[in-house]
Amino acid sequence: MGEAISFYFLASILTVLSIAVVTVQKPVVAVALLVFNLFFLAGVYALLGAHFIAVIQVIIYAGAILVLFMFVIMILNPDMDLKETGDKGKKFILFSAVSVGFLFFSFKMFEQMAPLTKEDIVSEILEDNTYEIGLQLFEDYIWPFELASLLILLGIVSAILISRKPSQNKSV
């Protein structure tokens, strides 16, 4: 009962926030709303028993990635060209096409999914799984893990390379 109340509360907030993030005018407001969105999503993860993922979400997503967004918005002029360009009619057609497509796919998905819900679901949600995640991550997934660290390294180097000012002396 408590779980259901918390879930529907969080879900309604998340729905409103997700819509607001993409419709709001100012980038700063959007980032702030996205922070709340990710924070409440971490709440949903905690509700699902994934405490470790919830905390990782708060530390990395809300605490680091979105700070980067904030940072960039403040470095750039915050009120720059906010005008929306493009053809209104074309956009409307695209919008309805995407919405209809998503409705169609969601119905298809639930049709396909129906047998799964009955049989395979375990009754109790896994709790206290930080230890198991660590074990699996470093035993079964050790190579993907190493590759992910390489990816991060690549990301750091390329971000610096892309964003730095072109240097004055041409020798570099």
Binding site: F52, V55, I56, V58, I59, A62, D128, T130
Partner: peptide
């Protein structure tokens, strides 16, 4: 919490 001080850091 079983994630302990990670929560505090986050």
């Amino acid at each position: 919490l079983n994630v302990g001080f990670l929560f505090i850091l986050g």
